[in-house]
Amino acid sequence: MFFLLSKLLHLFLMPFLWVLLFLILALLLKKPKYKRSFLFLSLGILIVFSNPFLENEAWRAWEVAAIPVNKVKHYDVAIILTGVTGYREDIPDRIHTHKGADRFLHPLQLYRLGKIDQFLISGGDGRVTGTAVPEAEQIEKVLLMAGVDEEDIITESNSRNTYENAKHTAKLLQKHPEWKTRLLVTSAYHMRRSQSCFTKAGIKADVYSTDFYSGPRYFTPDELIVPNAGSLSNWHLLIHEIAGYVMYKLMGYL
Rank of each mutant, 00 (worst) to 15 (best):
T210N: 09
L183E: 04
I139S: 01
E137H: 07
S209F: 08
L120S: 02
H168Y: 15
Q118T: 14
A170T: 03
K141I: 06
E156F: 02
H176D: 05
N161D: 15
V148H: 05
S214H: 09
L105V: 13
G202M: 07
R217P: 00
N161M: 02
L120K: 00
F212D: 06
P221Y: 07
V226N: 11
I225Y: 13
D102M: 03
Y218E: 15
A132K: 08
E140H: 05
A170R: 08
G130Q: 05
P216Y: 03
L120W: 01
T129V: 14
T181P: 02
Q138C: 03
N158E: 14
E135I: 06
V207S: 14
L105E: 05
H106N: 12
T186M: 07
V185L: 05
D149T: 08
V128N: 03
L224V: 09
S209H: 11
D125N: 15
R160Y: 01
T199A: 15
Q109C: 02
N161I: 00
I121Q: 02
Q195I: 08
I203P: 01
R182V: 07
G126N: 12
S159T: 08
K141L: 13
S196T: 12
P221W: 06
L184T: 04
A166G: 10
H190P: 07
I139D: 01
L108A: 07
F212I: 09
R217E: 12
Q138A: 13
G126C: 12
A188F: 07
K141P: 00
G100S: 15
N161H: 08
F212G: 07
G114I: 10
D102K: 03
S196C: 12
Q174V: 14
E137A: 12
S196E: 14
W179Y: 15
L143S: 06
G123W: 02
M191N: 10
Y208F: 15
D125A: 00
F219Y: 15
H176A: 03
A188G: 03
Y218R: 13
L108P: 01
D211A: 13
H168T: 03
T131P: 02
T155Q: 00
T199W: 04
N165W: 09
I153A: 04
F219G: 04
D117F: 02
Y208W: 12
T220S: 15
I225L: 15
A132G: 13
V185F: 04
L105H: 06
F198D: 03
G126P: 14
I139F: 01
D149C: 03
T162Q: 11
L113T: 09
Q174L: 14
I139G: 00
E150Y: 09
R182N: 10
T129P: 00
M191D: 13
A205M: 07
I116S: 08
Y163V: 06
G100I: 04
V148C: 05
V185Y: 03
T129L: 14
L224A: 09
G126R: 10
D206F: 11
R192P: 09
D206W: 09
P216V: 09
N161L: 02
E223T: 12
L144S: 06
T181W: 00
K200C: 10
H176T: 02
F104G: 00
K204W: 00
I116N: 06
V128Y: 12
F119N: 05
V128S: 10
I154K: 02
E140M: 10
K204H: 13
R193L: 13
P216S: 12
R193P: 12
I225W: 13
S122Q: 08
R193F: 11
L144N: 04
G114W: 10
L143G: 06
V148E: 05
R160T: 00
L173C: 01
